[in-house]
Design a protein around this nucleic acid. Structure first.
Lengths: 155, 155
DNA sequence: GTTGATGTAACCGTGGCTGTTACATTCGTC
DNA sequence: GACGAATGTAACAGCCACGGTTACATCAAC
């Protein structure tokens, strides 16, 4: 299975929402394109909603839509939201603190990895949802066939 | 437990080797400081050896040492070796190819994530093992007590 | 009130990774 | 040449994270 699909899933569904340009989509419709379970999408949407990226309505005929213009949402932001800097320990059992190296290396590593992660996020910050949508649309010629059945109505 | 300690373990043991300045260390001694099992260290050393970072001797009185100067080994290189770009799928089941977005987004994401990873590695490339060792040594005042018993002889 | 949607808790199954054991192999030392 | 100490590697166990799934309360439009 794939590791940490959170970010990929998020970008995927946000791109779908961007493509729909304001028209709300249901979690089922989004799930159909992402190829996963609607609840997985709803969990993600809840996170994105709390972060102010999307708005989701409740009740019948509801759905989700972007809260901002696609050109104002960067992948860096999406990454920060979906993959928050984990405070997970670097070592399963921690290094041996009674050794010179072991005693100090954790802090050094955390600092260095932090700066690297910042570079990663900055690189992602160069792309907006609008960019992604444009790139996706470029390859539109090669679509094998239109999406079918019930999914066709929404995706 | 901590995720993917490979990189942290590698930097840790390489820093130890750098600290020893050419004197070979056994996997047991390294394991004592990293706080893990010698076999885990040996697995890592095998990878680092294949990549030309360390040399490991066999037989009694053997051990491992750096193959290059600590100032010529960057963390970017270590990262690339220990965490090779996984060809793991971005999606557990793949996106729905019959949808415009689903059909094209994977390639777009791979490209973008690739450039972000490059930025990450480049940031790590700014640090060498010598830098790490220097930073670790800076905090040397705060060592609680010298490492004890058999581990003291080697670490 | 019915219908169709969300939000969320709870649980299962799988996969990956560390840790561990076991064993063949290799080299220095006596 | 035998012994001891170390590596290299395969095989397995245990654990944990995460995606997938079910279930259900809630909410809004009609």
């Amino acid at each position: 299975m794939a590791a940490n699909c959170q970010f990929a899933f998020a970008v995927h569904l946000l791109t779908l929402l961007a493509h729909k340009a304001g028209e709300p989509m249901t979690s089922s419709a989004l799930a159909a394109s992402v190829n996963t379970h609607p609840v997985v999408i709803r969990r993600l949407l809840a996170t994105l909603s709390r972060a102010g990226i999307v708005v989701t309505g409740k009740g019948s005929q509801a759905g989700s839509r972007l809260q901002r213009s696609p050109s104002e949402i960067t992948l860096g932001e999406v990454f920060r939201i979906t993959m928050p800097a984990s405070s997970a320990a670097l070592y399963p059992h921690g290094p041996n603190k009674r050794c010179l190296i072991g005693h100090n290396i954790e802090g050094v590593l955390i600092t260095i990895l932090g700066s690297a992660r910042a570079a990663f996020e900055e690189a992602l910050g160069n792309y907006t949802l609008a960019d992604v949508l444009a790139r996706v649309a470029e390859g539109a010629d090669e679509i094998p066939k239109p999406i079918s059945s019930k999914a066709a109505a929404s995706a």
